[in-house]
């Protein structure tokens, strides 16, 4: 990639830090994102109420459940499936009031699933603090058949829907929570550039 080149649509992630001003806090994390949560509690234990939703899905994922349990005396909820975690998120948001601050740590896919779940409650993406951990894997949106393919680690991938070979662009859609995928061999079918893992 060209140096100094930066696409505005590409999200910027930070390290989680507490908002000083809030009436309550909601922290969501999965897998190795648990470390970001532990770091957050290393900074301090806020005076306002804190709720933590932690998911540990796959077998191979690092599990911080036990450490989190011993550190967080507040409201900690553990999940085996993202679906359940997101459902709980929706229940919490339904009754939440302004002043709730939201923090997410996990893969880019998880982060944008949370963003999408929070949006119907009038929460803008920019209000959610996001830390990307674990993997750079991208969620890819096929501009041809509109299928979303998750966990793409290579520059070129096969679309789950139409099986076209897609080039994974840097252009990110906040609404879809995905990078745009464009057919690579439209001009000369079958001629593909080298496929490399660049989003490990």
């Amino acid at each position: 990639m060209e140096r100094g080149y930066w696409i505005k649509s590409k999200p910027i992630y930070t390290s989680l830090t507490w908002h000083e001003k809030a009436t309550s806090h909601l922290v969501l994390a999965t897998g190795i994102g648990g470390m970001a949560v532990l770091k957050l509690f290393q900074q301090m234990h806020p005076t306002q109420p804190v709720t933590v939703l932690y998911g540990k899905y796959g077998q191979i994922e690092l599990d911080y459940s036990d450490t989190l349990k011993s550190i967080i005396q507040d409201d900690l909820h553990l999940y085996k499936f993202e679906e359940d975690l997101l459902k709980k998120l929706q229940v919490l948001l339904r009754d939440a009031t302004m002043g709730l601050r939201i923090y997410v740590a996990g893969s880019e896919g998880f982060i944008w699933d949370v963003v999408a779940a929070a949006k119907p409650f009038g929460i803008q993406e920019s209000e959610i603090m996001k830390e990307q951990v674990d993997t750079l894997a991208r969620t890819v949106y096929c501009v041809h058949c509109k299928t979303i393919t998750k966990y793409v680690t290579t520059n070129i991938t096969c679309c789950n829907g139409c099986e076209r070979m897609l080039f994974v662009r840097d252009h990110f859609s906040r609404n879809l929570g995905a990078y745009m995928g464009l057919m690579v061999d439209a001009e000369s079918p079958g001629e593909l550039p080298a496929i490399e893992e660049i989003y490990p």
Partner: peptide, 10 residues
Amino acid sequence: ARNLGWPENN
């Protein structure tokens, strides 16, 4: 509003 944690956008 700021002290109560309202985001600037709101």
